[in-house]
């Protein structure tokens, strides 16, 4: 999923200061799962912003709404009846959702309420870790199912580096060395020979090196 974290309240207050009526929009997908921008977080933020503004002597009207998905235009349409009665929109979705709202409502200022972090998985309750950087040419089949792009600090294609110690990456004791994990996993699979194969330098064009990426499915695209 895409993970995110709420921005500091102070930054959000700066965004909304000039406005009297705000639409705060959450998303029911990834940001709900990582507890950053779902219906509950929308309620908490609306309450917090309302109180912070009251303290500074201003009263702001905040409308709350959470969409099924903010990265699909079909769902954004749901906001049409609400948009004229507000001066600005604040989105609690990832950057994709924020941009979809901006694209749909040309004349409305739109602000992000969260910092979008990474594509990750939930390690345990309340802990999410980066797992994939969308490099466009997945290597997991060769690396025992552990990603060296997202999980190796140097994105080495042929690791580990000299800093790998006792399974940890040299950047910190709390970070697993991706290549140590790859080695362990290949051993378990009886594929140690994979480890000695030299992987050539990565072609970064599918990974964003050739500019913004797009997928066009001829069978689906209208």
């Amino acid at each position: 999923m895409i993970t995110a974290e709420r921005k500091p309240l102070e930054e959000l207050i700066e965004y909304i200061k000039p406005f009297k009526r705000l639409l705060l929009v959450g998303c029911n997908e990834c940001v709900t799962v990582c507890a950053a921008g779902g219906r509950k977080e929308v309620g908490l933020l609306a309450s917090g912003l309302h109180m912070a503004m009251l303290k500074s002597g201003t009263n702001i009207e905040i409308h709350e709404h959470t969409l099924e998905r903010q990265c699909d235009p079909e769902y954004i349409d749901e906001l049409v009846p609400m948009i004229d009665s507000v001066d600005a929109v604040m989105s609690m979705a990832c950057g994709c959702g924020v941009q979809e709202i901006a694209r749909r409502f040309k004349g409305k200022p739109v602000f992000p309420a969260v910092n979008t972090k990474f594509m990750g998985a939930s390690e345990r309750q309340g802990v999410w870790s980066e797992r994939c950087q969308g490099c466009g040419d997945c290597l997991l089949g060769k690396t025992g199912g552990v990603c060296p792009i997202a999980r190796c600090a140097k994105q080495l294609m042929n690791g580990p580096c000299g800093g790998s110690t006792g399974g940890h990456c040299e950047i910190g004791e709390d970070v697993d060395c991706a290549w140590a994990l790859i080695w362990e996993r290949l051993k378990e699979l009886g594929q140690e020979d994979r480890f000695v194969e030299i992987t050539p330098a990565k072609d970064w064009r599918p990974g964003g090196g050739a500019g913004p990426r797009k997928i066009i499915r001829e069978d689906l695209a209208e």
């Binding site: 500091p8 309240l9 102070e10 908490l44 917090g48 109180m51 912070a52 303290k55």
Partner: peptide, 8 residues
């Protein structure tokens, strides 16, 4: 912590 951010 959140209350502190709000100023309470």
């Amino acid at each position: 912590k959140y209350l502190e951010e709000i100023g309470i």
